[in-house]
């Protein structure tokens, strides 16, 4: 009784997303398991893969269009600032504690 909200849903973006997400998960696992890189570079690879993974989820699963000047864009930007604040503050605190206690 509620057909009015049907939109065209194709599995294609989801499948692309799943494949990309799997690849981006396998890469860090593989690097850690094989220890192909020195530890510092492993961290960089994990971090980079995680960030790209976030973008993949947003783009292919949540269909967040990255068009400029849409209101969603603005909200997302505000939230990104908050996240940066949280992450930055945490890193500052944790490195400070590390330097003083280790």
């Amino acid at each position: 009784m509620a057909p009015q909200r049907r939109t065209n849903v194709t599995p294609k973006p989801y499948l692309i997303g799943v494949v990309l997400a799997l690849v981006l998960t396998v890469i860090p696992f593989g690097v850690v398991a094989s220890r192909a890189l020195p530890p510092k570079q492993i961290f960089v690879v994990i971090g980079a893969a995680a960030i790209v993974q976030i973008v993949v989820h947003l783009r292919f699963f949540l269909h967040l269009e990255l068009k400029p000047s849409s209101p969603n864009q603005r909200i997302a930007l505000c939230f990104a600032v908050v996240l940066l604040m949280l992450a930055g503050g945490t890193l500052w605190i944790m490195f400070n504690l590390h330097d003083r206690t280790m």
Binding site: V82, G89, N96, L97, R100
Partner: peptide, 21 residues
């Protein structure tokens, strides 16, 4: 709301962070 996200450390002044933090 925004400020509340940036003050967590005042719950653990005694944990051992430096004086600048």
């Amino acid at each position: 709301a925004v400020l509340s996200l940036g003050v967590c450390l005042h719950h653990f002044f005694t944990l051992g962070a430096g004086s600048d933090v």
